[in-house]
Amino acid sequence: MTMRQWWVLLLAGLAVCAVAPILSSINAPMVEMSRETPVEPRKVSLTYHDPPDGLLVEDTVYLTEGIEVNERLLAAGKDVAFRPGHLAAGVRVDRNGRLSGTPQQAGTYVASVVGCAGRTCDKDDVTLVVLGNVPWQPRELAFPGRAGAPLDGEIGVEGGPAGVLPTFTVTDYEKLPKGVSIGPDGRVGGVPAAPGAFEVPVRICVAGNCAGVVVQLLIA
């Protein structure tokens, strides 16, 4: 073997040794490398509630001397329990906000009420305006109309304490003809859908002095 042949064999052997690891890595199964995936920030939905201006929705109650009270305090928040007790002028409040008693003397009285929702309590002043017992009577109770034509009327009240607006409450809505309504201000309106004679029970209150009446709707 000549020197040239010996060098050729040596170089060929070195080449085989260098290529063998590469070929073995190509034939080996691929292993997937784990990678870090960035976590998206969690979205948090926040709801903000503005606190009410006070404990009560309405802080003035109108009552009539010598007339049993049938009113209720309305809390601005939810699930509010009132602290029972005496308010003023012979009037009491229970945990549901219901007022009871019979005012014996006219005048304006301011009393504090406490209401709690869970462990959170709030305090507010309520004004009881006790008016003298001035007789009153309804002014209009019968309203004629025609089916398909707008109805426009007002019950109204004569007498009662000066400056006090009466309130009107329908006590049986099923008695109302279809398309007709009676509002808390005594307005009778709407468009009657069919003719007929209808008698609607309504409760009228003037400063806590209440009476039930029957409103007649005569639709031709």
Results as ranks from 00 to 15, higher is better:
residue 160 G to V: 04
residue 26 I to Y: 12
residue 137 Q to T: 14
residue 192 P to H: 10
residue 126 V to P: 01
residue 12 A to R: 11
residue 55 L to R: 05
residue 73 L to H: 13
residue 220 A to Y: 00
residue 138 P to H: 10
residue 218 L to K: 10
residue 99 L to W: 06
residue 79 D to R: 15
residue 209 N to R: 09
residue 85 G to R: 07
residue 167 T to Q: 14
residue 196 G to R: 08
residue 163 G to E: 07
residue 201 P to W: 04
residue 51 P to E: 03
residue 47 T to R: 07
residue 137 Q to V: 09
residue 162 A to E: 12
residue 51 P to W: 00
residue 212 G to A: 15
residue 80 V to Q: 05
residue 149 A to E: 15
residue 220 A to E: 08
residue 110 V to H: 13
residue 50 D to N: 01
residue 192 P to Y: 10
residue 80 V to L: 11
residue 156 G to M: 05
residue 206 V to S: 03
residue 52 P to K: 08
residue 180 V to Y: 07
residue 82 F to D: 03
residue 104 Q to F: 08
residue 20 A to W: 14
residue 195 P to E: 02
residue 149 A to L: 14
residue 9 L to Y: 12
residue 72 R to H: 13
residue 220 A to Q: 04
residue 66 G to W: 08
residue 84 P to I: 14
residue 172 D to L: 09
residue 174 E to I: 02
residue 128 L to E: 02
residue 143 F to T: 03
residue 210 C to W: 12
residue 141 L to W: 08
residue 109 Y to K: 13
residue 163 G to P: 00
residue 113 V to N: 13
residue 4 R to I: 15
residue 77 G to T: 12
residue 219 I to Q: 00
residue 118 G to L: 14
residue 41 P to Q: 11
residue 111 A to Y: 12
residue 57 V to S: 10
residue 215 V to P: 06
residue 171 T to E: 04
residue 77 G to A: 13
residue 67 I to F: 06
residue 116 C to S: 14
residue 1 M to N: 03
residue 36 E to K: 09
residue 154 E to R: 15
residue 45 S to A: 12
residue 65 E to G: 04
residue 76 A to T: 15
residue 95 R to P: 00
residue 133 N to C: 02
residue 34 S to N: 08
residue 82 F to W: 10
residue 202 V to G: 02
residue 85 G to V: 12
residue 17 C to Q: 14
residue 8 V to L: 15
residue 171 T to S: 11
residue 64 T to H: 07
residue 70 N to H: 13
residue 8 V to A: 13
residue 19 V to L: 15
residue 145 G to T: 11
residue 150 P to H: 13
residue 198 F to T: 00
residue 33 M to N: 05
residue 24 S to F: 13
residue 170 V to H: 00
residue 195 P to Y: 07
residue 162 A to L: 09
residue 15 A to K: 04
residue 11 L to Y: 05
residue 78 K to S: 07
residue 107 G to W: 12
residue 48 Y to E: 01
residue 167 T to F: 11
residue 196 G to E: 04
residue 56 L to T: 00
residue 45 S to T: 08
residue 156 G to V: 02
residue 215 V to G: 06
residue 88 A to S: 06
residue 83 R to I: 06
residue 162 A to D: 06
residue 44 V to H: 10
residue 83 R to V: 10
residue 74 L to M: 12
residue 84 P to H: 07
residue 178 K to Y: 03
residue 82 F to I: 00
residue 38 P to A: 15
residue 25 S to F: 09
residue 126 V to I: 15
residue 193 A to D: 05
residue 46 L to P: 01
residue 166 P to W: 12
residue 92 R to I: 01
residue 214 V to G: 01
residue 125 D to W: 10
residue 55 L to A: 08
residue 127 T to W: 06
residue 169 T to C: 03
residue 28 A to G: 02
residue 173 Y to D: 03
residue 124 D to S: 15
residue 18 A to W: 13
residue 128 L to K: 01
residue 177 P to D: 10
residue 73 L to T: 07
residue 152 D to S: 15
